[in-house]
Design a protein around this nucleic acid. Structure first.
Lengths: 207, 207, 207, 207
DNA sequence: AATGAATGAGTTTTCATTCAT
DNA sequence: GATGAATGAAAACTCATTCAT
């Protein structure tokens, strides 16, 4: 059964990702993970010192995967608009494809400083990747813009989380929409003249 | 000992809000809540059938409070821009003031369908409140705009959560910024030199 | 079932004394103790924070009982010779009556500093009680004499421990013998023919 | 790596003696022993069927070493008084030199009949060695005398165990004292002024 | 209504032992 | 013979919940 070095490690990480992601940290038993990985309970502890450490490893792998994929995707495009769209697609697709693993983020072990720290770093690195795109595009206040853009995208994730039937077609439209909204603001995000009209009158009102 | 009807109920809800919010659902013991409320453990079960139900009640009270406050705040303003700013202020201040209670959202009991359902409804109601403002302001695609706006605001909450030292002054600027970004898009949101300055100092932090 | 305050505490201590004493610390399960006490496992933890703490309490009760009984017995006699005999009787009878509980001393939890400390204090207090008798009797070097006397007596305990069939009649003779040996030394302790006879028969057993 | 037959056996026994002796049976892991012996865990099981058997072998080697050394030491002296002193020196020095290995005796595996039996035999053989000296010296009731003498000596071991700072100088005096006490009894053992002085200083310590 | 002692199901983790290489 | 990865039985301890008072 164990032909390759590290095979068991992968089996455990995969099983843990699946179960932590589906049921959350507290509702997942080590024995479940071992069972799903097809190994014995004790074997898990040959690779991870504790349940927390295993969760940490799963989280790390997932986050690194996310950021790595983002980098790759960003390499194939040049304009800022393209890049922002790539970011949006990556974000929404990544979590859409993993819509059944969303508990990884929302049901984490409590008060683990190492995990908190890693999550903070992850958020920072993601933000900085977006910030870089914006800075190169000449956008001012790129940090807050980046944060906001990510927030808009993450709301898609929330919608997916709370609506598992979220249709894939809508995902694409929503993604495009968010990218445009970010660039142009809500006053310009409607293609029709009447909207522009309303918008103009709105501009007048608000001053 | 019990002078007013429902007094104990409030004591329990307050203690539970405090402890669930600080430590999360799984790390909070009923006995801790009872102790903090100054009552006996068994008494909690006179008011709530289970730990989950108590968590549900705490969540419900918190969410209703949030939405009620939003309604109140929206009543005092008329233009869409004003209203959007009010929404942003409400969102950011609400969670800033409760920055030590953030586990209420991130460490919730697992797989409780009733809770999931309530959260879904809450998100919907919040979104509809924002949507109404946008619709009345003539914004097209108000649903997605509302979702996106909330997402931008919620990112502020995330930043507060992961950075408990988040300064209140920055909170106001960030709030204003988000409202403007939403209206005008990133291409128009950085026209003023002072904003550029702030952004630059922020850039420094992020490296 | 629970009529008196502290009843359960006694039940637990009695059961723990019995089982720790018979099987040693490591071979005794908390569930066994609870079962023998007729209570639930969790109840043990209402009274004792850990298995070690329970063991400590059992040891303490036993040692205090031993020293208390010694004090009581010493009150009824005046000469040093009488007192030394009382000490010997007390020591040998105490452990003879508890011959099935001897693991309490030999199979203790490892590396518990509090327990080590208490045992040290117990040995000191016992020695000092004997020392006092010797000092009042005008014996020189009472500390080392006391230690040695206790050592001689404790050897009886060892013999009982390794020979559960140890006959009670021999216990009395052995006790008398030790007291005399301590006073007079081995050169003077075999003056009577009947003692020689007994000793010869003992020699036969030991081959 | 294995140049001599039985080399590994010795490595294991040495490591096991060290660790069992320092930490006791239950607190010592086979993997620790293997690690300290510089071999693999599985290798231990090529030499010993179980942890208990290994402990048994360690105990046996230690006890045989003790008895063998005693025999050797006894060969160089002729009078009973000399021999008793040799016994006392051997006993006290043996355990003084091994003061950090005392758990070998106090934290033994529970309820192992073979071990119990061996210990019983060991005690008997030791007693008989002492008994022989006494019988040849014309002492009456040599069995009980031997037991008592050993008890006095073993108390020294206990004092060492509970007081790791036990000074070597005191050990020699105490040993001489015990031999004299055994021969002459407490009434005759304090004739010399310098001994009284020492004893007084000892009294001070015990308060 | 209020209490808090009692319960016991449930889970992490350890470690002696095995066995394929 | 030697290895060490894998196993899984076993036990301490927790804590939501109950119920007699």
């Amino acid at each position: 059964m164990s032909s390759t070095t590290g095979e068991k490690l992968e089996l455990i990480l995969d099983a843990a990702y699946d179960l932590f992601g589906s049921n959350g940290f507290y509702e997942t038993k080590i024995s479940d993970i071992a069972h799903q990985a097809g190994i014995a309970k004790g074997t898990v502890y040959l690779y991870f010192k504790s349940k927390e450490e295993l969760f940490m490893a799963v989280t790390r792998r997932d986050c690194e995967h996310f950021l790595g994929g983002l980098d790759t995707n960003l390499q194939n495009c040049s304009t800022m608009a393209e890049r922002l769209l790539v970011i949006a697609k990556h974000h929404s697709m990544y979590y859409f494809e993993r819509k059944h693993r969303t508990k990884l983020f929302f049901r984490t072990p409590n008060n683990d400083p190492e995990l908190m720290d890693y999550m903070k770093q992850f958020m920072l690195r993601y933000m900085q990747a977006v910030e870089k795109v914006l800075t190169e595009g000449g956008v001012s206040q790129p940090v807050w813009c980046a944060e906001s853009y990510i927030g808009m995208l993450d709301r898609i994730r929330m919608d997916i989380l709370f609506n598992p039937e979220f249709p894939i077609e809508q995902l694409h439209e929503r993604t495009d929409f968010v990218a445009r909204l970010f660039l142009e603001g809500c006053n310009h995000s409607g293609d029709h003249q009447d909207q522009i009209d309303r918008d103009n009158s709105q501009e007048g009102e608000s001053q």
